[in-house]
């Protein structure tokens, strides 16, 4: 962290800690990972009442141009309410909801030890053996179940998240609006997919917390143990099958599956056996299509940020995703 931002961050912290001595912020370079937020790990030292304090923290700030336009206040308030709930979610510390202090909306959270590895199930950086990888895959299902089992009313999540009458319709409406708002050109294939989803949407069922982006790349691991699930910016109330569809999306199999050992059917069977719930296969297919429609919306948002010179990330278009979406709905095309 450098210059004006250092001073802004120190002022932001001082406003929350009050008059303390020896305040020191030790920051590193912007961390890799996360296309939607700027991530800055830092250590905070201060003295208060003769005691020395040290906290490992993590700042997540909205970038100038993102792939997701979400509200830091909602994410912060959800995580604050989840802190005493039985779920491995990160602890949030401070919020600059409107960016008036840190330049853009941001939140500070506890920084956890552990490593992050998007492709750990394929071996990743640590090269765990297949049994260890299968164990990690199994823990990822437990993590998802943990989220779906949350008592969202008891935790007060309905104070910050909308309760959809029809989760599938709400999801289509949300991502269709993103595509409408962000796309720089007409998208006939995505229009077709939207209409397909409207015709094939599942009936409303039980409402649960939906994380919206469960994947090893959003988890911190301690060896082969899942520690904490990060990145709750797409959390919402909806249909639990949405998360199951997200993690069984054929496009993401390399992140979530182990060929021949832990494939989509194994994942769904494990979920059903451990929860006693049945995942309707037609509904699952709908949510797998929705997953790629959502990814197309995210890519289109990235393309707009790139074409508007708001990000240095060079984005290619959503062509491959639209091809996959057509393949997923292919039997209707004849």
């Amino acid at each position: 962290m450098t210059g004006d931002f250092d001073a802004a961050l120190e002022g932001f912290i001082r406003a929350r800690l009050g008059e303390v001595d020896g305040l020191r912020v030790e920051g590193e370079a912007r961390a890799i990972g996360g296309q939607s937020r700027e991530n800055w790990p830092f250590d905070l030292h201060w003295q208060d009442g003769g005691q020395s304090h040290h906290r490992q923290l993590f700042l997540r700030r909205d970038p100038v141009g993102s792939v997701l336009e979400t509200d830091r206040r909602v994410e912060f308030e959800v995580l604050r309410r989840l802190h005493d709930q039985p779920v491995r979610a990160p602890e949030v510390v401070w919020l600059d909801a409107d960016g008036s202090e840190l330049g853009r909306p941001a939140m500070v959270m506890t920084r956890y030890d552990g490593h992050n590895d998007h492709f750990i199930l394929q071996g990743g950086d640590g090269r765990p053996d297949e049994d260890s990888r299968a164990g990690i895959a199994s823990q990822m299902v437990d993590l998802m179940i943990e989220i779906h089992a949350l008592d969202w009313k008891g935790a007060g999540l309905d104070e910050v998240l909308a309760v959809p009458a029809d989760p599938a319709e709400a999801a289509i409406d949300e991502w269709a609006a993103v595509i409408e708002r962000q796309s720089l050109e007409p998208q006939p294939v995505l229009a077709y997919i939207e209409q397909w989803m409207r015709r094939n949407r599942p009936d409303p069922g039980e409402i649960t917390v939906v994380h919206g982006d469960i994947k090893p790349g959003n988890v911190l691991f301690d060896g082969d143990q899942v520690q904490v699930l990060l990145d709750w910016e797409t959390v919402h109330l909806g249909d639990l099958a949405e998360d199951v569809g997200w993690v069984t999306n054929p496009l993401r199999r390399v992140e979530h599956q182990i060929p021949g050992r832990w494939e989509a059917a194994d994942l769904v069977s494990a979920y059903e056996a451990r929860t006693g719930r049945t995942i309707d296969r037609d509904a699952l297919r709908f949510w797998q299509v929705l997953a790629n429609y959502k990814l197309a919306a995210i890519v289109i948002t990235g393309v707009r940020s790139f074409c508007d010179d708001r990000t240095l990330r060079v984005w290619l278009g959503a062509g491959q995703l639209t091809k996959l979406l057509l393949a997923q709905t292919a039997e209707e095309l004849g």
Partner: peptide, 10 residues
Amino acid sequence: YLADSTERLR
């Protein structure tokens, strides 16, 4: 058209 266009979409 949609089926054929998949080959042109990159």
